[in-house]
Simulated scan of single mutants.
Amino acid sequence: MGTPQAHPGLWRRNITGALRAYRRYGVDAALEYDKTADGRSSALFVAAIDPFGDVVAGMRVQGPYTHVDEVNALAAWAGRPGESALRKRVADRIPEGVVEVKAVWADRGLDRGKRRALGAALDRCVVHVTSLLRARYGFVTAGEHAAEGYRTSGARSDWWIPAVPFPDNRYRTVPLWWDMRTYRSVAAESQLTLIEAEQLALAAGDTELPADLTGTGGLA
């Protein structure tokens, strides 16, 4: 975990990997690569690095937000049922801190077991980045196929807000929330145990990146 400014080389590899993954499914427009590639709109990013130094999964984070109009994910509901309800939901929570996770991806070249483990780790990372940014709420909009994974790490869905076809008609996208005060009562026990262990490691400062992965060394 780090900022694009502190680790520019690693950030570039992460967002380029996301672009490849999104293009594979023809949904790269949802990534808004041209707007996000410079890293300025991202408060943090997470990169999964294999033993060879390759970035194989990741995500980026925006926020904490100060106004509902900063949340561009809401555009998916523009003019559709649920727009007003979701905008109010976001606006009501902004005073206590809302951060949004975006551009979640994993390398399709990995075997199914590794992809599953990486997916679970990224689900847990929503809790970590929300805590690191001192926000109460983590927020993501995701296809229904991904929602169950997020729920294992403590997310709740706004079930009364209708899903929307985004990025296209192949997907039914829903809003999901993590509340830092209550997610433990929702998370699966297996995920909660790992969340707590990882939070201890973060608090102890055990996550410093090696020099050659920070954007200043040979691998960047």
Score class of each variant (00 low, 15 high):
M1C: 12
G2E: 11
T3M: 01
G9C: 09
L10E: 11
R13C: 00
T16M: 05
T16Q: 08
A18P: 02
A18G: 06
A18N: 09
L19H: 09
Y22K: 00
R23S: 08
R23L: 06
R24F: 12
V27F: 11
V27M: 07
D28P: 06
A29W: 02
A30V: 04
L31R: 07
E32T: 13
Y33I: 04
Y33L: 13
D34M: 11
D34T: 04
K35N: 02
G39L: 08
S41F: 03
A43Y: 03
V46F: 02
A48T: 08
I49P: 12
D50N: 15
D54Q: 15
D54R: 11
V55I: 12
V56G: 08
G58L: 10
M59K: 06
R60K: 10
R60I: 13
G63L: 14
T66Q: 05
T66S: 10
T66M: 04
V68M: 06
D69P: 00
V71Y: 01
N72G: 14
N72E: 10
A73D: 15
A75S: 06
P81D: 15
E83H: 09
S84M: 13
A85L: 12
A85K: 05
L86P: 05
K88G: 15
V90D: 02
V90C: 04
A91D: 08
P95L: 08
V98W: 07
V99N: 10
E100P: 13
W105C: 11
A106S: 09
L110F: 03
D111P: 01
G113A: 02
L118M: 07
A120Y: 10
A121E: 10
H128N: 01
V129I: 14
L132Y: 03
L132S: 05
L133C: 04
Y137A: 07
Y137E: 01
F139A: 14
V140C: 15
V140S: 12
V140A: 15
T141K: 06
T141V: 14
A142K: 03
G143S: 07
G143A: 02
A146E: 10
G149P: 07
G149V: 10
Y150T: 04
T152C: 07
S153D: 08
G154T: 12
S157F: 00
W160R: 06
W160A: 06
P162S: 15
A163P: 01
P165D: 06
P165C: 01
P167V: 12
D168M: 07
R170C: 08
Y171T: 13
T173Y: 13
V174P: 00
W177N: 11
D179F: 04
S185M: 00
S185K: 00
V186L: 05
A187C: 10
L194K: 09
L194R: 07
L194E: 06
A197E: 14
Q199R: 11
Q199E: 13
A201T: 04
L202R: 14
A204M: 15
G205E: 02
G205M: 00
D206K: 01
L209S: 00
P210K: 13
